[in-house]
Design a protein around this nucleic acid. Structure first.
Lengths: 236, 236
DNA sequence: CAGTAATGTGACATTCCCGTGACAGCGGCC
DNA sequence: GGCCGCTGTCACGGGAATGTCACATTACTG
């Protein structure tokens, strides 16, 4: 496994230095940013594997950057660990709700930080990559953000695309609406669970426009949620 | 989705009581244990979805129980959150290395605890893969929430699925209707005991539709309840 | 073998869950 | 501004799943 790149965002140079030391000892590669704009530039330019983000920053609080990262498609999956001096629990809850993967209060022990970072990286590294996915005649082109069925392009919105992407990456498995919201919409977005139903319907409709049989790929699991099942396609 | 069962392991009754309150407000079902042996018994008998484990316990420290749980196959995937009064960072690292899923220092805010617990449960319920149970040609696919008999899918409702799941996890043992209601329907649910009979019938019917022999897996123990007995399948 | 308690079984009302169409808000684009 | 695509929410309707009952059947008891 190659060294993971970690971006440290904090306005105090001494803390950045301390973190750099701790990270490099543990075989991480370290980037530093003192404010939000520098941080955002480095995220785009250097695509780090993880961000350590201070709560209070000049030029906008850290949570604003967090919101922005979780809002944008390209950076949504990037793990973020919040650092804060505050101990009030509401901040923790707020941070977790916006999508932080973990939360550590200063002063913290480097060893603890490293241990938690590794735990988070272990989880997120199990996600998939690849430029296209295929199920029968159905081809999902990730780069061009298109879905082809028997050479013909299917029309669907961004959410339906993400939904299909997730399903194709995790076939033969039933997901609850809560899980789908979590994995497709993003960590902690607050929308009604029934919204999932509507997008499932739109996705089914899009698939059906290409070939009615392919709409059956998405099955309703009553009392639970939905399932993407290529297995049953072959049978039919 | 049914309420998650949480086991609280702490020797102080006041803390257990506080946690029970916090958990029940958030729709968790709460079990309590004051020591390691009681805790282990409850884990085996009640199979909770998560354990809140105090660091210091009479009769062996909490981390010993944690080691044991992570060592044994059956309990390896069970999420464990460590509770501790100690603030020394080495404890955190040690706990996480042994396999605790999170670590909270007392005093902690109930809101934070609940938020973290939910995050962990979301993860663990969507991470476990490839788990299935098998008895002869009968395969219960947990992830995809399907039941296959000789490659053919069986139709049954959610309750029958849960019932079968429970039976397959606890074979060769007779359960009373009250016990089945408790374990399958969940505690705090009041329904007539005879309701169990009806669902047993529906389950038998579903199995019979696949292969009549498999309906005999579920045996009536007169005066007691029912039993799932793979052993008698081989004989026939 | 009769009597009784326990279980099997079909039917039914109710509740719950899901599919679906409609609609308003929002932001981008010409 | 006006149009348009996308999104999230709602309300309605139909159908599946559930819990309960009444009655049939079975298994023990003496």
């Amino acid at each position: 496994m190659s060294a993971k790149k970690v971006l440290v965002v904090d306005d105090e140079a001494s803390i950045r230095e301390m973190l750099r030391l701790a990270l490099e000892i543990s075989d991480f590669e370290c980037l530093e940013a003192a404010d939000i704009h520098e941080a955002y530039r480095l995220i785009v330019d250097e695509s780090p594997d993880m961000v350590l983000l201070d709560w209070m920053l000049p030029g906008g609080s850290g949570i604003e950057l967090l919101r922005r990262l979780k809002k944008e498609e390209a950076t949504q999956a990037l793990p973020v660990v919040m650092l804060t001096a505050k101990t009030h629990e509401d901040n923790v809850v707020q941070g977790l709700e916006v999508g932080a993967d973990d939360y550590i209060t200063k002063p913290f022990a480097p060893k603890e930080l490293i241990a938690r970072m590794k735990a988070i990286l272990r989880r997120s590294s199990s996600e998939e990559g690849g430029s296209e996915m295929r199920v029968g005649e159905l081809v999902l082109e990730i780069d061009s953000r298109r879905v082809m069925l028997s050479q013909k392009a299917l029309e669907m919105g961004p959410t339906e695309f993400k939904l299909l992407h997730f399903f194709m990456a995790h076939p033969e498995r039933a997901y609850s609406r809560a899980q789908l919201l979590d994995r497709v919409w993003g960590a902690n977005v607050y929308v009604e669970e029934r919204t999932v139903d509507v997008h499932i319907r739109r996705l089914r409709k899009a698939l059906q426009a290409g070939d009615p049989i392919y709409a059956d790929l998405i099955q309703t699991v009553r009392g639970t949620g939905y399932r993407f099942s290529p297995r049953d396609l072959a049978v039919a």
